[in-house]
């Protein structure tokens, strides 16, 4: 009974340890940026705590769904756009290959200024596409009024654009693979057609050659008998100036 009880406890401990290990296991998604302060660069404390919470939540979703780290920068009259950009650039390790976006928001009394920077974009056939799409998103966000509306528009717009940008390379690869397969199939069909045409020409030629060869061989194999000749003397002269040859029958 005591042994049974100790086995049961051991099993329970092992089960608990494995469950804990599963919980603590590092996730596939890189979350280091979420933990770093530079995912939100707000030296002037423009954001309210609620806005910070909202941004962090959206950043996590964007990272999970599109594997893109979207940082937010905020500046006012005491800081410049370039300062925020420099801080953001410095926060990304040189070896980092992940797609990064910075939404840089200048918050002023009468208006807001938006600009979007990016690093390590997905490779697309059209090299200007990422730039054009993010320029379009900038315009879309910029047209909103008030920081809350700007943030809300940025969440929706960036999510949409990232959905497109993250899927586009896969689609381009599929399209290119399909084109390659079609090209290969067309080439194969062309070669088969050429082979067929060549065979149609070569086969009758070979046949003719074989026929000719067979006929010529059969003609060559027929024995040819040279006539047996016998010289006879003419007027008694065995080797005269001329002679008459007569075949013996």
């Amino acid at each position: 009974m005591r042994y049974l009880f100790s086995i049961l406890i051991t099993v329970l401990l092992v089960f608990q340890a494995s469950a804990q290990q599963q919980e603590e296991a590092p996730k596939d998604l890189p979350e280091k940026f979420l933990l770093e302060q530079n995912a939100i660069i707000d030296p002037q404390n423009i954001l309210s705590p609620e806005q910070v919470v909202l941004i962090r939540k959206e950043q996590k979703l964007l990272l999970e769904n599109h594997r893109c780290m979207v940082s937010y920068g905020f500046y006012g009259i005491h800081h410049s756009q370039m300062e925020i950009r420099r801080t953001w650039t410095a926060s990304i390790p040189a070896t980092d290959q992940q797609f990064h976006i910075l939404i840089n928001i200048g918050s002023f009394l009468k208006n807001h200024n938006i600009d979007i920077q990016f690093k390590n974009p997905p490779l697309l056939d059209d090299i200007n596409e990422v730039e054009n799409i993010l320029a379009s998103a900038t315009q879309n966000i910029q047209s909103e009024r008030g920081l809350d509306a700007i943030l809300e528009a940025s969440f929706v717009s960036i999510n949409d654009e990232l959905a497109y940008l993250s899927t586009r390379p896969l689609l381009e690869k599929d399209q290119s693979d399909l084109e390659e397969t079609k090209k290969n199939a067309a080439f194969k069909a062309y070669i088969i057609k050429l082979v067929k045409i060549a065979l149609c020409i070569i086969v009758p030629l070979i046949a003719l050659f074989i026929i000719w060869n067979i006929y010529s061989n059969s003609r060559n194999k027929k024995p040819y008998y040279f006539p047996e000749t016998k010289t006879i003397t003419r007027l008694g002269a065995p080797h005269g100036a001329s002679s008459i040859t007569q075949q013996n029958r």
Partner: peptide, 11 residues
């Protein structure tokens, strides 16, 4: 004789 003809007729 017949093989090439058969081949041709197939192709």
């Amino acid at each position: 004789f017949t093989t090439p003809l058969i081949l041709a007729s197939l192709l």
